[in-house]
């Protein structure tokens, strides 16, 4: 039971990170109708930028952890958002009205570019950081000495996710930008006729998605204490799996899917085998798509004849 509770905590934390990445996938898919294959690598870039900002701040002699965290968060969100914007401008916008496969391949190409750009720029070795936020709470200790731990990092990851999700839900449901986004999702031509700046709205979608991916990158860095140039690929596929699982195009769905994937992966590792945890996540994706092609919270698609 204690073991189970501990795994539940771990799974929820991992799921929060996946959920943050998944939102980027789901938003882009909702508006432009393409899988942004480079999004996982944007997450990786976000992690790297967070790492480098940390290093600089620490070498500048800053010690106040909340200040450092805030600066790192803002810097990595800003720069990563610019990456998202640039990628859309270079690789996707020229192909917006093109054939369906073209933007997908362009996105795969962009993903290779980012992976190897980061490998060339920062080297292939894993980059660790020392544990930065330490401490935590012991929730429960059983007779046989097993303790349920809730670390400060875990609390931080979950709280940050909830806060960001709240801000983000507000953004999409209450602001002009959110309305423009939903309009573009329905019908870009009509939205443009009604005075929505479609180009800008799509750009903003990529910017927001990338900023959230940067947050996920930072969380990953803090939680696992390392980044490497290849981490975007697997995390990206899993986050996409999460987006599909939750029902692509649905924001709460993406978060829910992220949590589901995080939990599945954690419990599989805990009770079955660590080696096959990714196999489990992918198998679940296949099974869900077969039996629930629109995901958990997706809108059912009625075939128009």
């Amino acid at each position: 039971m204690d073991y189970f509770a501990q795994q539940l905590i771990n799974g929820l934390v991992l799921g929060s990170i996946y959920g943050l990445i998944a939102i980027g996938y789901t938003m882009v898919y909702g508006i432009v109708g393409m899988i942004n294959f480079a999004h996982g690598d944007v997450f990786m870039i976000g992690g790297f930028i967070a790492l480098i900002t940390f290093l600089i701040l620490i070498s500048l002699g800053l010690t106040a952890i909340p200040v450092i965290l805030l600066v790192v968060l803002l810097v990595s969100m800003a720069i990563t958002a610019l990456y998202g914007w640039t990628i859309e401008r270079i690789a996707y916008r020229p192909l917006r009205h093109s054939f369906r496969l073209a933007p997908m391949l362009s996105a795969i190409g962009m993903s290779f570019v980012l992976t190897n750009y980061s490998q060339v720029a920062q080297g292939a070795r894993v980059k660790p950081i020392p544990p930065f936020i330490t401490g935590g709470y012991t929730l429960h200790e059983s007779q046989d000495g097993f303790v349920i731990q809730l670390s400060n990092i875990q609390i931080m990851v979950v709280i940050t996710t909830i806060v960001l999700l709240a801000i983000f839900t507000w953004l999409v449901s209450r602001t002009r930008l959110g309305r423009d986004m939903r309009a573009c999702e329905q019908d870009q031509t009509m939205a443009a006729l009604l005075g929505v700046n479609v180009d800008r709205t799509i750009s903003m979608t990529f910017v927001i998605g990338a900023a959230l991916a940067a947050v996920a990158g930072l969380m990953y860095l803090l939680y696992y204490g390392l980044v490497d140039f290849f981490m975007g690929f697997v995390a990206g596929i899993k986050a996409f799996t999460a987006a599909v699982l939750g029902g692509i195009g649905s924001l709460p769905g993406a978060m829910l899917g992220g949590l589901a994937i995080g939990l599945i992966e954690t419990f599989w590792s805990a009770y079955f085998s660590v080696e096959y945890k990714d196999v489990a996540a992918f198998s679940i994706l296949i099974v869900v798509l077969i039996f629930m092609p629109t995901g958990l919270l997706g809108r059912p698609e009625v075939e128009k004849v």
């Binding site: 192909l95 073209a102 190409g109 962009m110 290779f112 190897n116 060339v120």
Partner: peptide
Amino acid sequence: TYRMLVFGWAMVLIMI
């Protein structure tokens, strides 16, 4: 190491 970088750019540019 630059090979995949070039390959990725090639994919993007060819598609465009």
